[in-house]
Design a binder for these strands. Sequence first.
DNA 1: ATCGAACCTCCAAT
DNA 2: AATTGGAGGTTCG
Length: 298
Amino acid sequence: MAKCVKVTFPLTQPYNLGETLFSGQAFRWSLENPSDLKVNYQGIIYGRRVSLIQEQQTIIAKITFEGTDPISESDLRDLVGSYLRIDDDLESFYARSAADEYLQSSIDQYKGLHLLRQEPWECLVTFICSANNNIPRIRLLVDRISKACGKAITDSQGTYYSFPPPGEIAMLGESGLRELGLGFRAKYVNHAAQAISRGEINLENLRESEYEETYQSLISLYGVGDKVANCVMLFSLDQDNSFPVDVWIRRVLREKYVPKGEAVPDAQLRVWAQNKFGIDSGYVNQYLFQRRRLERKT
DNA sequence: ATCGAACCTCCAAT
DNA sequence: AATTGGAGGTTCG
């Protein structure tokens, strides 16, 4: 018999769940609407299938499970609260940003957009897959990897697959990953899976490390460069001063921030921005990215 | 050191 | 209808 655990988060800070879940940091959330009036987001957090709903000043998280593998209310609260970074002090960030006109208007537009705290391994693979790729295809690839060797989770809504641990993906090997359509990214993901499953790098431990140490550790992986490393650090490793520079961020920096006379090569844009935005770098990046990407002009 | 070109695959735009 | 261009990047020459 299916059981259900549910927790409610009363919001004291702005939170825009839909904007956050589909802001290009996570790629496995889906929008379900089972004749329900409420928008219902479904996804998997640390192997648990979670359903999320936002009503004005509240976010509700629900898990259903079949007898086995129960979870307590307080564990579910910790799991979801941590993933959603629900306690982040956005109002302070907003206050510090008020003087920056362009940033302020981006905040007005996407108020409540949060950074997430994802699983590092899944985040790493996701962003390796993002190289020279588009969003629908990134979703497709991560889905296929999960179906290929993730654990099936079935509930009333259907069957879903958890993201497989490094050892499982390592067993697919480069050729297995190529068959899933990863293309040249297959050897990158394979390499990372081998390295992590061998214990050469402990991703979770990097949460406790300094920016530079974490960064060096990540880019030591074949196929992980500056941009992917910063994405993983920002979206899963608590390194809030990270600043991933992709094509959209590069545009907005050059259009709105770097003075015309100032020669800042692409390779130095990240550090330039980090010096400017300091501890807010990560959140600034997320708001500027969201706005510039959705404006879609080149 | 720096800068293009090449890389898988899929799909939209000629 | 066949072909070309390009997509949230990284590596190699």
